[in-house]
Structure formats: structure tokens, C-alpha cells
Design a protein around this nucleic acid. Structure first.
Length: 287
DNA sequence: AAGAGGCCCTGATAGC
DNA sequence: TGCTATCAGGGCCTCT
């Protein structure tokens, strides 16, 4: 679930629901996430008030007073659930579950506010919660991240310069968070389709025109997905709260051997593996 | 030093 | 039904 648009949706709903709230209680059932939750995690956060919630590529950053931060990453399977006391349904245009359909296993972290619980669920435990103290350390943590597609820094000159002399295909560049941050395996395929670029094309061979298309498409696809509430890929049985609609907009992802949507194009969508990650593209209109 | 591949982990699904 | 193998939206580490 979580590439940039999905993380953005989660961030937006957290801002609506837990901003300015004070943490009353913390329960940790499993400290062994990708980064182990330290013994003093609870001490740092208890009774602290949330100042704001922001996002950088696929990371959520919660700000507290005195330059205390909590960074959240959802990994492959992390989800955040909000449960309001006394309410049966949590409406929301978010990826939260309703109360009745709340997952039973893998609820590793619970943070309680007044009349509201936030629960972190993550079967694969590739995600993490990490405390950071000080602006400088926060900056350090993110220093290797490349620009987001929306950033002005993600421009033709930057791309040309970065790809120069390197021998990787363009799809793997899109997954390289040092090059551009926030794009994951699904959106990489979608962006390349919109750009009419073949995923196995070498990055260094892209024309100026193709680079510009790539910039435009990256922004367009991610923005469009955010507008539609992100993508909810799996059909989570027994759940009601998942509202993402962008999975209905996929042009290539999971469309193996189906016809290309482009009018005039007689191509078929093919699935290949590039660096062990599934990759979808049209065998006619992506060059 | 860049790039490919393994690995962390659990769950869903396909095939026998 | 029950086994095994494979794959899944991420990212870090190691080896060449």
C-alpha cells in the first residue's frame, strides 16, 4: 500500500484527527520492527502534545515540542488505524478500518489520546517508529533522500546529470530513493507507461523530450493518485474503511496480457522482472 | 563505485 | 484437506 500518495493520505487524516492531542498512554506489544523500538520510547512520548504531522517521501514525521520528532515508515504492510471511543464507524476518506473490521493480529503499537486510539498494524514488520531528538539529527536522517518528483530540484538538468555515466535501466532509477524519492514499484510502472518509456531502457539514453515527459508524468500520476485517495490494492476482507480509488486507474500494473488502453495501440501489457521486482509495460507504445 | 541479489517477515494464493 | 512454492506496494546490507 504505501508509496508517496498513500503516505500522504495517511498524513492528511492524522492531521485531521490527532493534531494538538496529548498522548495519554502507550502500549507496545512487539518492539521488533525493522528498527527496534527502544526501551525509552514510551518515556519520550508520554504526555507529549502533537504539534503537527508532515510527510517526506514515504516517511511520516510527527512533531512535538522541543525538537522532538517521531518518524514513521509503513514498510510494505504497515497500516494506521484510528478508533474513536463510542463510535461504530470511522467514515473518513482514509485508509483506516472501521471498528468492527479491526485486524486482530499484529497490532504492535497503540497510542492513546483522549477518546481516541491510534493503532499501528504491520504483519511483515518492515515498518518502524523512530524517535529523533534535534533538528540536526532529523536533517541527518533524511540527508540521502533525493528530491520528490514535485520538487523543482527534480528537473531536466538534475536528471541528465544523475543518469550520466550510469548503466541502470530507468525503472530501477525510479525506485532509487537517492535519485528521486517517494516512487515505489507500482507507480514506477504507471509513470513509465504515461511517459511512453520502456522500463528496461537505459537511463543514460533518454532523450531530453523523454526526460521532460518523465518529470511531468511522475508529478501527474502521484498527484492524481493523491486526489483519488491513493491505491488500495488488496481486497481486504472484512474491512470497510479503505477508500482509495486509484487502483481503478492503473493502466499497466497487474494487467498482464490485457490490451493496452491507448486508442490506436494494438499492444499488450507484459509482465517482466527487473531486479526481482515485477514490472508492467505495453510492448508496443513504450520505447 | 555502481549495480545485482539476498535478506528481513508474514500471509495469500496457486498448484499438486 | 494439506502440503510446498511463489509472490507481495520497501529498503538495507553484502558481494562482485
Amino acid at each position: 500500500m504505501p508509496e508517496l500518495p498513500e503516505v500522504e493520505i495517511v498524513k492528511q487524516s492524522l492531521n485531521k484527527k490527532i493534531k494538538f492531542k496529548k498522548i495519554q498512554k502507550i502500549i507496545i506489544r512487539n518492539r521488533n520492527l525493522r528498527i527496534r523500538i527502544g526501551q525509552n520510547f514510551e518515556k519520550f512520548l508520554i504526555r507529549k502534545k502533537i504539534k503537527k504531522i508532515s510527510r517526506l517521501s514515504k516517511y511520516i514525521i510527527i512533531d512535538f515540542d522541543k525538537n522532538l520528532y517521531c518518524i514513521i515508515h509503513l514498510g510494505m504492510s504497515g497500516t494506521i488505524h484510528l478508533i474513536e471511543k463510542g463510535k461504530k464507524n470511522l467514515n473518513t476518506n482514509t485508509s483506516f478500518y472501521s471498528l468492527q473490521t479491526f485486524p486482530k493480529k499484529h497490532n504492535h503499537i497503540e497510542i492513546h489520546f483522549n477518546k481516541l486510539r491510534m493503532v499501528y498494524n504491520d504483519p511483515r514488520r518492515f515498518g518502524f517508529f523512530k524517535i529523533i531528538i534535534g533538528k540536526k539529527r532529523l536533517y541527518e536522517f533524511f540527508k540521502d533522500l533525493g528530491p520528490e518528483p514535485f520538487s523543482e530540484k527534480f528537473n531536466f538538468k538534475y536528471i541528465k546529470n544523475y543518469l550520466k555515466g550510469k548503466n541502470k535501466n530507468i525503472k530501477n532509477f525510479l525506485l532509487d530513493q537517492k535519485f528521486v524519492s517517494g516512487i515505489g514499484n507500482i507507480y514506477a510502472s504507471e509513470i513509465l507507461y504515461l511517459s511512453r518509456i520502456s522500463p528496461s531502457q537505459k537511463g543514460k539514453n533518454l532523450s531530453k523530450e523523454k526526460c521532460k515527459k518523465l518529470i511531468y508524468s511522475s508529478r501527474y500520476v502521484l498527484q492524481d493518485s493523491i486526489k483519488k485517495g491513493g491505491s488500495s490494492i488488496r481486497d481486504f476482507k472484512n474491512t470497510l474503511g479503505i477508500k482509495g480509488e486509484f487502483q481503478n486507474e492503473f493502466r499497466v500494473y497487474n494487467r498482464e496480457n490485457l490490451k493496452c488502453y491507448r486508442k490506436q495501440c494494438k499492444g499488450l501489457i507484459k509482465k517482466i522482472f527487473l531486479n526481482n521486482r515485477s514490472t508492467f509495460f505495453c510492448n508496443q507504445c513504450q520505447k
